[in-house]
Write a protein that binds this DNA or RNA. Structure first.
Length: 130
RNA sequence: UCGUCAUGUCGCUCCAUCGCGCGCAGCAAUGGCUGUGUGAGGAAAGUCCGGACAACGUAGAGCACCACACCACCUAACAGGUGGGAUUCUGACUCGUCAGAAGACAGCAAGUGUCGCAGAAAAAAACCGCCUCUCGGGGUAAGGGUGAAAAUGUGCGGUAAGAGCGCACGGCUCUCGGUGGUAACAUCGGGCGCGGACAAACCUUGUGGGUUGAAAUGCCAUGUACACUCUGCGCCUUUCGAGGCAGCCGCUGCUCGCGGAUAUGCGGAGGGGGUAGGCAGAUUGAGGUGCUGAGUGAUCAGCACUCGAGAUAAAUGAUGGAGCAAUACUGAGGUAUUGACAGGAUCCGGCUUAUAGACUUGGCGACAGU
């Protein structure tokens, strides 16, 4: 099958409840400048991701939007790393990427961080919740 | 041509590939694929004013609180804008005119309060001085010096000495009338008067203001969830304790089997609130663009054309290339770096603040030419 680098609506983490649950019960790991919080689920559910850049760290809305777009772009281009492993284990995940630096960092640094996190997440644990 | 000030406009461009929101079309059929169109700002910002819209409230009046405050006009409205007036400041010169600038320009002559230092005294004043004298005192705001400010200025009269005490010419306040002006106001004449400043001191007067904001508000509503109402629950035996069969529920879609419940239960129908979630509000509007006309202008009127984001854990990005601009380096070909301020969240009108660079128009200055 041809590899496509898309990021559709179904792949976005949008449910308020699930987000709160992820923050409350999920595991986390930091790969500077990004902290990931995730929850592993069974394979019937869609893997979803959300991106957050706190206003407290990045003051200007323009910069926040820009960083969020860069993170999302990095996720879009590298999510196959995550998907392949999850498919093998018959799992899915709900992930929140949280920007923790206080200034805008170059694109390659963000992408390296994302790749590191995506490789780490599937190997972390068994299914946390159904 | 350069500099500077003001005004208005624009505020990186193009191509390729990958990707995103929304609309439309087609194909698929349960949320996808393909094609196509479209997709942030002049401030989207601050959330400081004013409205639209919505919900709730609302007999009338007063108090409190908040806002505003020369006049007229514009506007849906405004604390905004336009034009005008007075004041103050600056500049020019032909010295009383012109030009420009500034702003909480209603009232301290309603009451209360405050006025550091200096000074006798900071509001209805007696230190020195002057006059008088019964040597206790009394009169006196001319002169002295202090101060940001000292009791209407100058002259004459007057007096014991003085004083708007009187007079003349001025200044100012209030007021009456004439003229010009819609008005603020200007100007001329008459009259009462002479009260220092501060209302960004309390306050007084006039005008306006119901409260809360789209996280408002209205609506729909999944289920092996639920309030409530109606309704059904059989047959046989019996020593009346119960037992059996059928039916019901679960494993389980069917057969068998096993287990469970049997009126505080189970099944059926109605039905309301409303969780997850969704829809409306919500993008055609005080809309844009152009032309013509009215007006000093803000603005208004008419006609023609036009539809330019609509997300909701929230869409505009990434990579590569070419150009443009700026800066630095440079034996002028180039090399390197950078791309102002800044991102919609119900929608409009303003204000304020941020902003690299480019351009338009006008004023002033310098240089060059005529």
């Amino acid at each position: 099958m041809e590899q496509r680098f898309t990021f559709k609506r179904a792949e976005r983490l949008k449910s308020r409840k699930l987000i709160e649950q992820t923050f409350a019960e999920g595991k986390s790991k930091i790969a500077y400048p990004i902290r990931a919080v995730w929850l592993l689920r069974d394979a019937e559910q869609q893997t979803q991701a959300a991106f957050a850049v706190p206003k407290r760290r990045i003051k200007k809305a323009v910069d926040r939007n820009r960083i969020k777009r860069i993170i999302r772009e990095a996720y879009r281009l590298n999510k196959h790393l995550l998907y392949e492993q999850l498919d093998n284990k018959e799992q899915s995940a709900a992930i929140i990427f949280h920007y923790v630096a206080n200034e805008e960092l170059p694109h390659d640094k963000i992408e390296a961080s994302i790749r590191k996190l995506l490789k780490h997440i599937p190997n972390s644990s068994k299914i946390d919740t159904a």
